[in-house]
């Protein structure tokens, strides 16, 4: 365990930036919705406690969302690791709900690399590994640098043994 610890790779740091952008877009929508919703609510003369409580709640919720938009992508990034070993690929994810999955090389059916518009700007790529399994029929690794994703895909396909595994 200890000697493999150093082999664990992180995602590309740029993925923090792209995630942050996505989160901030979400945050902007939340602010917009709160302002509009809050204005309507106040205009429609709410019963006593709510006409001041509601704005307070909305402000607190938005503060929390802002905090998440700023810090969460970095926290998430710190907790995603991946590793290729002679036996297969392993991926670790999760901040509170943790999870680690391993796919032996021979069980990989195929692998794709995809890129969204934002990811393209930062030359990032998503790797999707497909197996013949059920629950984990496809495993995503989002936020690799595009070159690493391509390299990893080629490695996955090279390592996969020929033959029918089902």
């Amino acid at each position: 365990m200890t000697e493999t610890q150093s082999d664990w790779n992180k995602l590309d740091p740029a993925s923090v930036t792209t995630n942050r952008i996505v989160y901030f877009i979400g945050f902007a929508f939340a602010v917009l919705a709160s302002v509009v919703g809050g204005a309507i609510a106040i205009a429609s003369e709410l019963p006593e406690p709510w006409h001041w409580l509601l704005p307070v709640i909305l402000v607190i919720v938005n503060m929390i969302l802002l905090w998440l938009a700023i810090y969460w992508p970095a926290i998430e990034h710190r907790n995603v690791r991946w590793l290729t070993s002679p036996v297969g690929v392993e991926i670790k994810k999760g901040v509170f709900w943790r999870h680690q999955i391993a796919i032996p090389w021979a069980r990989v059916q195929h692998a794709d690399v995809s890129q969204g518009p934002l990811a393209r700007q930062f030359s990032l790529g998503n790797l999707t590994i497909h197996t013949a399994g059920t629950k984990h029929a496809s495993i995503d690794l989002e936020g690799l640098s595009h070159d690493v994703a391509i390299e990893l895909r080629d490695k996955v396909i090279r390592q996969r043994k020929a033959g029918d595994v089902v």
């Binding site: 709900w97 999870h99 680690q100 999955i101 391993a102 069980r107 013949a132 495993i139 595994v165």
Partner: peptide, 16 residues
């Protein structure tokens, strides 16, 4: 073993 496609473990905060 030859039919196992993937192995995984997971933990909820309670599990931890």
């Amino acid at each position: 073993f030859e039919k196992i496609q993937a192995a995984s473990w997971r933990q909820t905060p309670f599990d931890r």
